[in-house]
Design a protein around this nucleic acid. Structure first.
Lengths: 102, 102
DNA sequence: CCGGATCCTAATGGATACTG
DNA sequence: CAGTATCCATTAGGATCCGG
């Protein structure tokens, strides 16, 4: 690992992962596409606003895709992109360290 | 990876790593023990307060040891503990993803 | 040299009510 | 169902000055 290559991309990635709910949202989506209400059910402590904010951020970053199915009522599903799925080992790594040491 | 074991230790670890300067401080310390002024030199954009705050937090969490050498003037060195050194693969993992995708 | 103390601003997190 | 809008509390980050 080289110091000069460590930032700023490291900072951006760590910043995202450090935000509340990011890890848990991605974890849920690793199980497959999910709807807004599914995510609320699986992470009940999270408020609507937090979920909305985070999903918008993840979509903007290209970590999540948002599919709109024009049914009635409309159905919207969120799904990880390749970029998002590639976070799995990262999250596992943090998880492993946390379990062992925190 | 199991959802029930993912939190709260994951959250605590991600929260720490997401704080500004944490990764860079640990990275510098992976190179060996460092003094306060050494760290300031290697991370010149960081204010004294930020370094003080972060070092105190890392020490409290047992990630860094603080050695006081009673010379005149006093010399203080910071060094990673085993817990701290174990963050190396975690930081590398975040770094790798960041390089590839961000 | 190694911080501590103060004060301030910006960003983040959250509760609640409302809407197409 | 899938969000917005509003308002508020908390926290992180930072500038500056002070001291043993």
């Amino acid at each position: 690992m080289d110091y000069s290559t460590m930032c700023p991309r490291y900072e951006a990635a760590a910043d995202l992962l450090g935000k509340k709910w990011t890890g848990r949202i991605i974890f849920v989506l690793l199980g497959g596409p999910r709807r807004f209400k599914d995510m609320k059910e699986q992470i009940p402590e999270m408020s609507d606003k937090m979920l909305t904010d985070r999903m918008k951020e993840l979509e903007t970053l290209g970590i999540v895709n948002r599919h709109v199915y024009p049914e009635m009522p409309v159905r919207i599903e969120y799904e990880l992109t390749d970029k998002g799925r590639d976070l799995k080992p990262v999250i596992q790594s943090i998880q492993k360290w946390g379990e062992q040491w925190m």
